[in-house]
Design a protein around this nucleic acid. Structure first.
Lengths: 142, 142
DNA sequence: TCAAGATTTAGAATAATTCTAAATTGGGTG
DNA sequence: CACCCAATTTAGAATTATTCTAAATCTTGA
């Protein structure tokens, strides 16, 4: 993944949040940095724990609030794979998620280019594809 | 949807559960009936409340257990659309879910026939497509 | 500088799900 | 048929995930 410089990042964040009527705050920046830092689809709880290392006073509710702000502004995506905690992903390029049932890793995969055929009048805003199966490494080990 | 007679249903349930090493119990039957009865993608809590009408002694944990048994046996699908409760769907024909952000209704929609292109070695077991947007009725009302 | 509104905080509250241990049920076997 | 074993159910406690609340803090524009 091409790294964006911090300054560019700031500007990008400010713009995207601004367009949604939200401000760029140190906490939102921090939460975004956590997502960028390791794109392993962490849960809100995991984001909280990682953010706390750099910003020990950050609270639980703030992390949820920041994640929601990022999602609303199109800076992150919410990924729900199962019963259980929601995960987050800063990769905004159209893609799906492959969940390995053996090692529980989540991989980003290409979407089919072909658009979904919707009933007349329905308007899609965005869609999520979650694929469950076994990843190459786990398949090999069997 | 074509209704299956009760007796056929029983046999179908017994077979499917049996193949997974599970038994058909009155509770599992009841939970399955609830799903068949109204295919509106209820949450586990909603299934619990509906099942209780016919079977007042049924417990919370049993409903979760039954739903898991049905999902494992390929008799129902788990649908996760958002943060919040998981929903269930007895329609096992390949399809995706459209979630109207305005009225919160969940519609079944056709999947693209084209298969997902996965990285080499990955094996898909099943996949879920969740589309978020506005349904025809809600779009009209705006 | 001040007021208004946005944001954050800690912690309580709620919602969703899982766990536990005891009771019950359903087959298969002698 | 009586018994045993394993699967299942039950009630309720426990845990996990998320949201809410009210007070404190920060930011921005007048």
């Amino acid at each position: 993944m091409k790294a964006r410089s911090h300054q560019q990042n700031d500007q990008h964040l400010t713009e995207q949040l601004g367009a949604t009527g939200l401000r760029l705050t140190p906490q939102r920046q921090q939460v975004y940095d956590v997502l960028q830092d390791k794109c392993d689809h962490p849960t809100a709880e995991e984001v909280f724990m990682r953010a706390k290392k750099a910003m020990p006073e950050i609270s639980h509710a703030t992390v949820y609030n920041c994640l929601d702000a990022l999602v609303k502004s199109g800076l992150a995506r919410q990924v729900t794979l199962d019963r259980g905690a929601t995960r987050y992903c800063p990769n905004m390029i159209e893609h799906g998620h492959f969940h390995c049932d053996t090692c529980a890793t989540v991989f980003d995969v290409d979407l089919p280019k072909q658009a979904m055929k919707l009933p007349k009048g329905f308007k899609a805003d965005h869609f999520d594809i979650a694929i469950h199966g076994v990843c190459a490494d786990c398949a090999k080990k069997k």
